[in-house]
């Protein structure tokens, strides 16, 4: 009997959303913050982002070709990794820094462990950690320059004084009193910092876009941010202003919305995500308040990445009907 039609096992229809689309949404969500970063720090920032993104795409392509991997570059995931890495760098770095960082992220962290979906750490963050470990002077402290003043939005000069030539976090660590005005700058992005983490409002727009598009859920960002807020409130002077500054500054929003939510390196279970996010928040607070670095987000997430599989193992969802049987 001649078979005329295609035969396969059910289901016969599939949902419209593909992996490439998800990655594209993440990329789009990153753009507002990237654009504000370029606006604040000038063309040098643009070149850093460009170098990071394209070197990541190129490295991914080369590895896939070289080892005849099945992964498609159209996954945009490499572009997301590159852009995220670039956004986590100060604008003053020489261009070989983002290129080297992207290559490390893609080759060592991502492809060496099996490519998309198999890395055990967030590639962009691991890339940044690698760069910080090797060239701390180029990435920390004096590397940060003051963001230029937003023309149309009046910002009092005292705000700039409070944050100039030092990231808001360094000021926080030094015990600078937080004024409401400086919170406004933090919110808009008129502060020093990495290219992609200066504007809270742009990051919020991107994060909400991801939640709206159902790429991520509220769980990790909300719990992460809440933990940092509550933690710093109790451990850093019982000041709502200071706690708010902790939330808005130092890449917490970038980390909470875009990096802690990375599918591959966070627990896949709902309960696991809550624990994971709480752990990220707690570690961030501890590193920021008691650690050697002013910045805690990237190491907090990297450390939690490593325990994610363990968290996941103990938070498997209940199988429907399971309890009734035991009862």
């Amino acid at each position: 009997m001649e078979g005329k039609f295609r035969v396969s096992s059910s289901p016969h229809i599939i949902a419209p959303r593909s992996t490439s689309q998800i990655m594209r949404d993440v990329f789009i969500a990153l753009l507002p913050s990237a654009i504000i970063g370029v606006f604040m720090f000038g063309t040098q920032a643009f070149y850093v982002l460009l170098a990071a993104t394209f070197s990541a795409i190129f490295t991914e392509y080369a590895i896939v070709k070289m080892f005849k991997r099945s992964g498609k570059v159209s996954d945009v995931s490499a572009a997301v990794t590159g852009l995220l890495l670039g956004m986590n760098l100060p604008s003053t770095v020489p261009l070989w820094i983002p290129i080297l960082g992207s290559m490390f992220a893609i080759i060592i962290v991502k492809q060496a462990f099996g490519g998309l979906g198999h890395n055990f750490m967030n590639p962009a963050l691991a890339g940044r950690a690698f760069l910080v470990a090797c060239w701390p002077a180029r990435l920390l402290g004096s590397a940060f320059v003051e963001a230029r003043e937003l023309g149309s939005i009046a910002v009092s000069s005292t705000t700039i004084d409070a944050t100039s030539y030092a990231t808001p976090l360094v000021s926080l660590k030094a015990g600078t009193i937080i004024l409401p005005d400086s919170l406004l700058s933090l919110f808009i992005g008129n502060v020093g910092g990495c290219i992609g983490d200066v504007s809270s409002v742009a990051l919020l727009i991107g994060g909400l876009y991801l939640i709206f598009k159902k790429v991520i859920t509220w769980r990790i960002p909300t719990i992460y941010i809440l933990t940092v807020f509550v933690g710093t409130f109790f451990l850093d002077g019982f000041s709502i202003l200071t706690s708010t500054a902790h939330v808005l500054a130092g890449g917490l929003l970038l980390g909470a919305f875009f990096m802690a939510t990375d599918y591959t390196t966070s627990p896949i279970t709902k309960k696991g995500q809550l624990i994971f996010a709480f752990g990220c928040g707690l570690l961030t607070v501890i590193i920021r308040l008691y650690g050697g670095y002013p910045e805690g987000v990237s190491y907090a997430i990297l450390l939690m990445n490593i325990v994610a599989p363990l968290v996941e193992r103990y938070t498997r969802p209940k199988i429907f009907g399971e309890v009734a049987l035991n009862a």
Binding site: K4, V7, H12
Partner: peptide
Amino acid sequence: EKIISGGPMMGVAQSN
């Protein structure tokens, strides 16, 4: 492309 006995989620594909 396909002939299915039943629905698209759980049906059985037919070759003819």
